[in-house]
Amino acid sequence: MIAATIPRASGLGLKSRHCAEILASRPRVGWFEVHPENYMGAGGPPHRRLAAIRRDYPLSLHGVGLSIGGEGPLDAAHLARLRTLVERYEPGLVSEHLAWSSHEGVYFNDLLPLPYTDGTLARVVEHVDRLQEGLGRPILLENPSSYLTFEESTLAEPAFLGEIARRSGCGLLLDLNNVFVSSQNLGFTPESYIDSFPLDEVGEIHLGGHATEPDGLLVDAHDRAVADPVWALLALVLQRTGVLPVLVEWDNDVPAWPVLHREAVLAQRLLDNCRHARAG
């Protein structure tokens, strides 16, 4: 197994259908990321593939199922499953979402929105604390794609996330496609969001494609290439943060490997530009 550390380079969301090609050709990709929930079976081909990938590439675990924003207590069984995977695959990064997805034992398979209030802030911080204690390591928390807001919200999302990071010691995962999707759906500029975002806390950047509904609504569908305005946001953020791990997600209508790989090459080009600009 090579070193766990995620490099400040571009990586890709790992799709099982690409594994054979990746293992045969060992392409230049900085690192891979998976959803741990898809590797929580006892055995079988998913684990065989992931173990083979992990021998050659650093890995990040990007959870979708812990329901960190849930009103109930953190799911101890799910946390234990996650810990088992962390011990087995030694990921360089572990991340989760600012969202809830379970209520009273029912799992909704969606990243559901939270009101940004002092009450939810305290709850999320408590859950992040428990998660970090359970894993014995810090995590990154990702900003959501939003379609609506809550009347009761009193805090802006960047400030809310910054406060979670300050109180819990977690880092942040800045998803620039989510910023763009939310900005269009809720009517703000992505630049204003980034201006107020606690960029010092960012440990990873996500990019992905979004779908545009006939009525103009943007859906965070991860079903196509990264959109031009999202690439522009990456260039903007990298100017301020310097190079960071940058990951491209493509989860629906997954393309052939060369098409996905091209997204990583594009992201790497922006990272290289950033490095040169800073060195020069």
Partner: peptide, 10 residues
């Protein structure tokens, strides 16, 4: 019968 676990493979 919605899922009772975030492990959707089940």
């Amino acid at each position: 019968e919605p899922p009772r676990s975030p492990v959707l493979i089940d």
